[in-house]
Design a protein around this nucleic acid. Structure first.
Lengths: 251, 251
DNA sequence: AATTTCACCGATAGTACTATCGGCGAAAAA
DNA sequence: TTTTTCGCCGATAGTACTATCGGTGAAATT
């Protein structure tokens, strides 16, 4: 434990890293509500006021965290494309499609949880970022599916692809959470399940365009363009007085 | 607009409902962080201090909200079982399996969003509740699948069923969000997609037990009980000094 | 009619957090 | 060596929220 002689900028950089690291830990354990300058500074071992030596304000810390997340995300995407290209066989390439995002997630579980939380929390500073990332991932998958020859011409085709991509994303997320939580320790088994689910949607996409020649044991194609479900009532089932609604004026 | 003569308890009850209603609205729009007595009271049209006429403290409001959510959830589960029993055909019963939870979700979108958020947010007062609810839903699905004759004897079988149930839940959630957001306006089409995914896992579950006689065009069963993936490194990729870690002591 | 109850009000004490300020001492520059 | 820089410190002003308290008037009770 001989004291390391650090230059001033090295020391500062180190402290900043400690702050970021502490921030991520707090974000993961307590959520965004627990992320205060007091806690971050204490966890990083400096005075609360010294926080402002490194960040203009709390918001800038959040932005820095977001930037870092984005960086890693883009890197993961790049790697995914590269590795998918290099897969030895069609079957293995198909598995890689699921394995690569899973591995990326598992390498940064705190980040992943953060993103998942932010996606459903409009008050999070990462909300828009998370929503956009999810949309980008969907678009990426849709493009892949279309390039594999699945129909994407009509608007209904595109929507169908969107839904499938959405589903794949949700499945991957759920399996990743299960793996991170230790419920599904074997990642290959997780990939098995994702591949299995994929046979379902592959079948759907293949049989879709003519919308009629269904396989023998398959149920016939259900009515599409049927009655649209009615708009959703956003009330919670808590009734108010007739003609009511919350008053707006105070006092 | 003739003024309604209300008894005292009626008026109080009404105000309480307004508070709950306002709380749900804020929760949905701003997340739990925005749920302050100030905002809830103002939205309900009473003074902030009057909040405490109706709730002992902020925590009790949260508990009341949670209770209400639980109530509705149990009700939805009960109805689901009833309706599933009454489905006319096997095929329709299968569709009902997906349609019923979706409809329940769409009837209370704010509630659903809240639950989804809470599930990923350990700082939420609804966190444990949401996690337990999700687990209960999985268990319910696992039981259903097992009762349909899918293998559940060995531990690996149970885990496989768990994973599938987990996946179904995630798919339903994602599709429900898409429907609520207006991206997938036709609920029957959503059910179509869920049914399609289901063919994938049904196939997986059917061919699983012997773990070898795979169908003709199916990839062979991958190695199971293979190398467990290594434990996950919870650091974010932010390196610290060697032997480092955040200091704990302040000052 | 007289009295009691109580839903609501305004004021305010207490708490937790954000952000700023002046000072200190060691590293860096002269 | 002398001077300057700057990362860190403690103190503190300002802000937003929680929860309590005494007062008020109309509904409820007598």
């Amino acid at each position: 434990m001989t004291s390391t002689p650090l230059t001033r900028s090295e020391a500062k950089d180190l402290t900043r890293r400690r702050l970021m690291r502490a921030a991520f830990a707090i974000l993961d354990e307590e959520g965004e509500a627990g992320l205060t300058t007091v806690k971050v500074a204490r966890a990083a071992g400096i005075a609360q006021s010294s926080f402002y030596v490194h960040f203009k304000d709390r918001q800038e810390l959040l932005r820095a965290l977001g930037d870092r997340v984005g960086e890693r995300l883009r890197g993961a995407m790049r790697e995914a494309r590269r590795r998918a290209r290099e897969a030895p066989s069609d079957r293995e390439r198909h598995r890689e499609t699921f394995r690569i995002p899973l591995e990326a997630i598992c390498r940064h579980p705190a980040l992943f949880r953060l993103g998942l939380r932010a996606r459903h929390d409009p008050s999070s500073p990462f909300h828009e970022f998370a929503v956009e990332s999810a949309a980008a991932y969907r678009a990426h998958l849709v493009a892949d599916l279309a390039s594999f020859g699945f129909p994407a011409g009509r608007e209904s085709d595109r929507r169908r692809l969107e839904m499938v991509a959405d589903g794949i994303g949700a499945l991957s997320d759920a399996m990743a959470i299960g793996h991170i939580d230790g419920r599904y320790p074997d990642l290959e088994e997780v990939v098995d399940v994702l591949v299995a689910f994929s046979y379902g949607y592959l079948r759907l996409l293949r049989k879709d365009p003519p919308a009629s020649p269904a396989g023998p044991s398959l149920p016939p194609d259900p009515v599409r363009n049927g009655p649209r479900t009615p708009p959703i009532d956003p009330t919670i089932g808590i009734r108010d007085e007739p003609g009511g609604g919350a008053r707006r004026d105070g006092a």
